[in-house]
Nucleic acid binder design. Structure first.
Lengths: 162, 162
DNA sequence: GTCTATACACCGATAGAC
DNA sequence: GTCTATCGGTGTATAGAC
């Protein structure tokens, strides 16, 4: 709390004018992040058909997560420092987001556009793969964001059997 | 330290007979884990050719990480609590392990068995995908470990274009 | 609204008795 | 080799002056 206060030019005590306690502050940061994520995906251009929507999801997820790397890192690392009910609220939002991808994969499998041994596992595998970009991507490295998106697009298309 | 001491039936002070300080204890746990991981992979049966070796890696990684979920979780979550030189030592072991998969993918790409847009990114993507299993797998859930391995095998084969 | 001062709990680590 | 006692530091949160 002292560090946060210092970063915004206050003393620690003054923070308690804005939050009842530290966990609530953490929860609010995480909830705002998840709400932003879901709202941004709702607004994203998606095209028609499962393949176009899968491609939209891949590009959206990589771009959004790289754009907000700090919030993504915080949301993952501090998740276990929430009490049970705050934890459950964030988990519900995360599952809601996962369901967006799962719906695309289900539609693609139903139309035989995708070939998947297990839709649920494919959802988790693809999200893990995409989120992993955040652990190694650095601005100014070997590949541009655009190039990373293209490479992952191709790998994800392969993964779903296209 | 008090919790650890209590878990092994000691008082906190007595732990310092076994470790000079808390960070060294953490580092030793993580180093032992990484050494075990690399040694176990060296001993694992691998078969011949890139595809057989890729399959061996997928099965090995899922099985080993599920078997030692606590150590995997600790090694990931506490990594940033190491000093720079201990951090670098663990990172080096992690990179060494990654290189094992990368070598398989490179060989497969060179022999045109695999079709990959970027070998390095494929390495990171596959490891992220496989490690992700630890975040959701629970004993007694919908799928057995064997079934999870088979499903991921099929997805990874797709990912590398087989 | 913000600051200073501080209460109270906990943490890592050490000293010294046994 | 282990325990008890304790030191110095830090953490969240609150009280009260301004």
């Amino acid at each position: 709390m002292r560090q946060i206060a210092s970063a915004v030019g206050l003393q620690a005590g003054a923070l308690y004018l804005y939050t009842p306690d530290k966990e609530t502050l953490l929860f609010d940061l995480m909830k705002t992040h998840m709400d932003d994520l879901i709202a941004a995906w709702q607004r994203a251009p998606k095209g028609q058909g499962p393949l176009a929507q899968l491609e939209a999801f891949v590009r959206f997820h990589i771009a959004f997560n790289l754009e907000r790397a700090d919030a993504v890192f915080l949301s993952y690392m501090e998740l276990r420092n929430l009490g049970p009910e705050n934890f459950a609220a964030i988990e519900a939002l995360r599952k809601h987001y996962e369901t967006e991808l799962e719906a695309i994969l289900k539609a693609g499998a139903a139309q035989a556009v995708f070939k998947l041994p297990d839709t649920k596992l494919a959802t988790l595998a693809i999200i893990a793969m995409l989120t992993g970009v955040n652990t190694w991507y650095r601005e100014g490295g070997r590949l541009s964001r655009e190039r990373v998106e293209v490479v992952y697009l191709e790998m994800v298309r392969n993964t779903v059997g296209v």
